[in-house]
């Protein structure tokens, strides 16, 4: 029983009907078509298979428009899939809505589920009644969340007067009041500053450890995935292109390291070229350089040894590529990813 999956999607397919462009038609026909357009299906999800076990914390990533939100909408019962099967906790989401939704929590990062004009507490009270949470249980959980997410000063403020970070903390508390067994988070950290992201991560991590619920998270933040998820699923153009541990993802698809070096002397170009022969240099100044190393060509250790032996180095940082880089890399598989954002050329 313990390992029977909580979420199971088989050949999940969803197409949206989008208007066909009326081409080569006369003006009258165009006008008619603007009112009654011919529709054609646009396939946003192309047969995705997914199994998530109890207590897993899945990072669901992919470029914009790859179908992450569409997946979440199908799994939460908002959308009825075009084809395929979905079973979450033994329910068919769009069919068993009333029973099913008691067991899940949902956050759509780009839409608020709270009531704009009313104090946060009013939304919480509404959700208490929507989920029929017993009063004592409600008070206990609200108190707990108030402490962990520092909601104290926010509860009596209207939602429209909260900052994005404050609002997101409230959304999270609201989505957990009824102790869901599965939590779906669609970009909960979108648009937040580093501090706000960090506090949300810390909370999610702690809550997941404590309650052992199953969580599916979409994000563009590597840190979210690194601190929270034990498994990553990558989506590209509506297809699953990777499913496994984060380390495996990086090893398999992104055998690169970004190396930044600061020298203690101004080097002449010739000496530098010799020392750096095996590396692709992307940016350099007189006393610093940034480069990307393909670890299939040379190990990081060898390169560092080489550098330190032939040059006088003040500082050296080696970093893993960002999530965006990883995703982009998998997406146009084969290309060597670019190093992080340029920091002004010397």
């Amino acid at each position: 029983m313990a390992d029977s999956p909580v979420i199971r999607a088989r050949a999940l397919t969803k197409s949206y009907l989008v208007p066909k462009r009326p081409n080569g038609a006369g003006p009258l026909r165009k006008l008619w078509k603007s009112f009654f357009p011919d529709l054609e299906p646009f396939v946003a999800l192309k047969g995705v298979d997914l199994e998530v076990g109890p207590g897993e914390f899945i990072g669901y990533i992919g470029p914009n428009g790859s179908g992450k939100s569409t997946t979440i909408k199908c799994l939460t019962g908002v959308l009825t899939p075009t084809e395929g099967e979905v079973d979450v906790l033994g329910f068919v989401p769009w069919r068993d809505r009333a029973e099913y939704t008691r067991q899940i929590g949902v956050i759509f990062g780009q839409k608020t589920l709270l009531f704009w004009d009313l104090a946060v507490i009013e939304s919480m009270l509404l959700f208490r009644d929507v989920y029929a949470v017993p009063e004592r249980e409600f008070r206990r959980r609200l108190e707990e969340f108030t402490e962990l997410l520092e909601l104290g000063p926010l509860l009596d403020r209207p939602v429209r007067k909260l900052s994005l970070g404050e609002r997101m903390r409230c959304e999270i508390a609201a989505s957990l009041l009824h102790s869901p067994r599965v939590l779906f988070l669609d970009e909960p950290t979108i648009g937040l500053d580093a501090l706000a992201k960090e506090s949300i991560r810390a909370f999610l991590r702690r809550y997941h450890e404590q309650e052992g619920l199953t969580i599916l998270l979409t994000t563009h933040q590597m840190e979210d995935i690194e601190t929270l998820c034990n498994r990553v699923v990558v989506l590209g153009s509506g297809e699953k292109i990777f499913d496994g541990a984060l380390a495996e993802l990086k090893a398999r698809y992104v055998p690169t390291r970004e190396i930044k070096v600061l020298f203690s002397e101004v080097l002449d170009a010739e000496r530098l070229e010799r020392a750096l022969a095996p590396l692709a240099v992307h940016r350099r100044g007189n006393d610093a350089l940034t480069t990307v190393l393909d670890t299939r060509q040379a190990s990081t250790g060898d390169v560092v040894r080489e550098l330190t032996a032939s040059l006088r180095i003040v500082d050296l940082t080696i970093s893993e590529p960002t999530l965006e880089t990883v995703v982009k890399y998998i997406y146009n598989s084969g290309a060597t990813p670019e190093p992080g954002a340029p920091q002004g050329r010397a």
Partner: peptide, 21 residues
């Protein structure tokens, strides 16, 4: 505008919530 989403993920008839809110 897709605001129905937030009512569809609740264990109450979405029509009641859409009208009630």
């Amino acid at each position: 505008q897709g605001k129905l989403d937030s009512f569809l993920v609740r264990p109450v008839d979405p029509r009641l919530l859409a009208i009630g809110t």
